[in-house]
Amino acid sequence: MIKLFSVKEKQKKDAAAINNPKQSAGELRMQKDMSELNLAKGTTISFPDGKDKLLHFEIFLKPEDGIYKAGTFHFDFQVPTSYPHEPPKIKCKTKVFHPNIDLDGNICLNILREDWKPVLSINSIIYGLQFLFLDPNPEDPLNKEAAEMLANNKAKFESQVQAAIQRGAYIGSNHFPPCR
């Protein structure tokens, strides 16, 4: 008898899955993006709400070279249902001393705002983020302190960033926990 009920429950569930309300355009496009996803070595993706909730995911990016080498940086992606007509909203969850990322995790990357266009994809955004770590841009900064140090004393900037990544460190009055 109990078994019979569980079978019925399962049938109900299956029926619900089939009658699933139509996927949004954003979800359809995200399926394409995910099937074409091409992550660099050391970069990983995860779906905290489950693999059927494609509109929310996390990227863990590990630069293989440059000032931020060996650090692991966590990004949270919220994809709107209007994607790709609007870009995903991205926050950096790892506290990092970077001219183009502020201490709240806001990111200054042109393709996430004024230069977004719908032919771009999740792949292009991840390339953009990788580029930001390989070539931080001290002009038009979100974190002025970081931009000034990078522009005035690149060697000092690099050693402070590496100290923060490896062991955690104070830079100015802010503490940056290790993130290797």
Partner: peptide, 9 residues
Amino acid sequence: DDVCGICRM
């Protein structure tokens, strides 16, 4: 090209 660059369909 066989797919639309916007929706990728």
